[in-house]
Amino acid sequence: MCLIVLSWRQHADYPLMLAANRDEYHARPALAAAWWADYPDILAGRDLEGGGTWLGMSRHGRLAALTNYRDPSRHRPGAPSRGLLVRDSLLAGTAVPTTLHHLAAHSGHYVPFNLLLWDGDSLGVFEHSTGRVRILPPGVYGLSNHLLDTPWPKLARLRERFAEHTRNGPDEAAILGELTDRGCYAAELLPDTGIDAQWEHWLSAAFVQAPGYGTRCSTLLSVRRDGEVSFTEWSWDAEGALSGECRHAFSLVR
């Protein structure tokens, strides 16, 4: 993923609500969110190049999502796929703090990333670039391609609007409207992450459209207090048009 916002214990009936966009090269093959045949308890999209995923939910009540940390100076050709870390975090039988600290101790050979993990009791994030594990109190959070809640313009706007659109439960139409906002920001408002200024401009939109690259899918997920989960994913083609939609509803197995 490249843009995630989530609400944790801010609504009496929905302890967790999440919205996200995945940005990727259009040539990289992937499958839409579905239950995996080889790991039947995992509901997630699948990267067909690396075998992992960017965001997933387990039938037993674990959610994991990963964003890249944008720093071209730390690119490492041949590094292992970070998507497998999402899969392994969903399958882990340990609590969030234990899982994230184990990840922190064994992630030195990966290109920088951030991983969010929730297990119904705790929400935490591992920030690979700092080596820090954070267990998060209730709140509304945002994560893009830097550290948690770094106030990049698109993230600050989406987090604020997501809080509004989930105040009475998830407003799907309004949230999808925010996820598909193609507006870019002025150069003076953007960070300097070491990439070309034109790419910084393209990537400043919530919904990215760039040559050969862009927002591939959008996800809206909610977990109700009674354990009912709603997982909706919209897929987008290289022109930014809707190319698919899938909906999953299921009850958590505790």
Rank of each mutant, 00 (worst) to 15 (best):
E127H: 08
E178F: 04
A156N: 07
F162G: 02
T130A: 13
F126L: 06
I135K: 07
H128S: 02
A156T: 10
L158K: 03
P137T: 10
T150K: 02
A173R: 13
H165C: 06
A173W: 06
E164D: 15
T150I: 09
G124N: 02
T166D: 03
D149R: 09
V125D: 01
T180Y: 01
V125E: 03
L143C: 04
R167E: 09
L148M: 08
P170R: 08
A163H: 12
G177R: 01
P138C: 03
R167Y: 06
L136H: 02
D171E: 11
L143F: 03
R134V: 12
H128A: 09
C184F: 07
V125H: 00
T150E: 10
G183N: 14
E178Q: 13
I135E: 07
L158W: 11
G131D: 04
H128E: 00
G142C: 00
T130D: 06
A174W: 03
G183K: 12
C184L: 11
R182C: 06
A173M: 10
A163V: 05
G131Q: 08
K154A: 01
E164K: 06
H165A: 14
P151N: 04
G142D: 09
G169T: 04
L179N: 02
R159S: 07
E164A: 09
A163P: 12
R182L: 03
H146L: 15
E172T: 14
R182K: 15
L158H: 01
L123I: 01
L143V: 00
F162D: 05
R182A: 11
P170E: 08
L123W: 07
P153M: 00
R161W: 03
R167K: 14
P153S: 00
N145T: 04
P151W: 05
E172L: 13
L155M: 10
G124Y: 06
Y141F: 12
L136Q: 07
G169Q: 08
E172F: 14
A174E: 08
G183M: 12
E172C: 11
I135Q: 05
F162I: 04
T150L: 09
H146A: 15
L155G: 00
L148I: 12
D149S: 07
I175A: 03
T166L: 06
L123T: 05
L143R: 00
L143S: 07
D181A: 13
R182D: 01
G124K: 04
P151T: 11
P138R: 05
